[in-house]
């Protein structure tokens, strides 16, 4: 229950063409991230049946649902603007789907109460949805989406309208709801990569209508398959490979700030294992609490480096671990 497959799904737009091949495992929590306009929401809408693809097939548990209307797919969605029905109160919103399925009133009441307590909003039954705060509204939307017992739950940037601390708290809630509702496959769209990394089983990176990479967070962060993925999923520096004579078939090298070692006093390490850059100037230093993020300049290129201390000198030598270098040719990773 809840295996989703997109095969050759295509939709043409003036700005780009959406082309997706994707498999989502039963019960997994998949997050789709990507820059604005990359087609994330469109993809969700296609999965939900609100948009029709030009080509391709959507399979749910092996069944082809491409031509099924949204009412019949067993897929639920939580929208960015919550889309709660303003003419109804919380209870009526949540029991909307139940009423359509002709669930008896007492049963409806029971299920609604269960859902409300599930999202920690017990007692909110009679509240008018227009009086709810952002966080409350979002939770009601979640409860409502779950009310139809879906096999797939889609969330389209559900937290983007909320403030940072609420977002943090609610994303954990979302994950908890997923965990405590076994069987629900969740596809979550966001542009916040921290969110993605913290709660997902797998992450799919979208760019201009294509999925660049689908993998677990660690894999994506440490072994991105493309330069785009690399730069999108975390801070880093890319430098042209020709600056260094390395015997590799690549045009760009990329490394994360934490791969850079700046010796406080003296460098104790195997020089061969490191790429050594001398005469690097400090341009900026950001205090992040746990460390400093330094902005450095080397031969006209900007480099980001993490350091546990703020260097006293203006110019220094930095060491980058060779094993931590990511190599790319024409944007694609090379080993």
């Amino acid at each position: 229950m809840g295996t989703l497959e997109l095969k050759g799904v295509k939709k043409r737009y003036p700005e780009f063409t959406l082309e997706i091949d994707l498999s989502v495992n039963e019960g997994e929590f998949l997050t789709i991230i990507g820059p604005s306009g990359s087609g994330k929401s469109t993809l969700l809408n296609i999965i939900a049946g609100l948009y029709a693809p030009d080509e391709g097939a959507i399979l749910l548990d092996g069944r082809d649902i491409t031509s099924l209307p949204p009412q019949k797919r067993g897929i639920s969605m939580v929208f960015q603007d919550y889309a709660l029905f303003p003419s109804m109160n919380v209870e009526k919103n949540i029991s909307y789907a139940m009423k359509i399925r002709k669930v008896k009133r007492s049963e409806r009441r029971r299920q609604t109460d269960a859902l409300l307590s599930f999202v920690n909003l017990s007692g909110y039954n009679r509240r008018k949805v227009t009086t709810l705060s952002g966080g409350e509204a979002q939770r009601v939307a979640l409860a409502r989406a779950l009310s139809s017992d879906p096999s797939i739950l889609l969330l389209d940037e559900p937290l983007s309208a909320l403030d940072a601390s609420l977002r943090r708290h609610l994303r954990d809630e979302v994950r908890r709801i997923h965990d405590e509702n076994p069987g629900v496959t969740t596809i979550y769209v966001t542009h916040d990569r921290e969110e993605a990394f913290s709660i997902s089983d797998r992450i799919a990176i979208m760019n201009a209508g294509h999925i660049e990479m689908v993998a677990g967070g660690e894999e994506i962060y440490n072994h991105p398959n493309s330069l785009f993925t690399a730069s999108f999923t975390g801070e880093g520096t890319s430098l042209p490979a020709e600056m260094f004579d390395m015997d590799v078939d690549a045009d760009t090298i990329f490394f994360r700030p934490e791969s850079v070692t700046i010796p406080q006093t003296k460098f104790y390490g195997d020089a061969d294992a490191y790429l050594i850059l001398e005469g690097v100037k400090i341009v900026s230093a950001e205090f992040l609490g746990s460390c400093y993020l330094l902005g450095l300049m080397y031969e006209g290129h900007r480099i980001l480096a993490e350091s546990s201390f703020r260097p006293a000198e203006d110019t220094m030598t930095i060491y980058i671990r060779k094993t931590r270098l990511l190599l790319f040719k024409d944007g694609r990773a090379v080993s």
């Binding site: 809408n45 049946g49 609100l50 209307p69 949204p70 009412q71 897929i75 029905f85 139809s148």
Partner: peptide, 8 residues
């Protein structure tokens, strides 16, 4: 859209 997805 939400309504459609809820089966209406």
């Amino acid at each position: 859209n939400a309504s459609y997805l809820l089966g209406s």
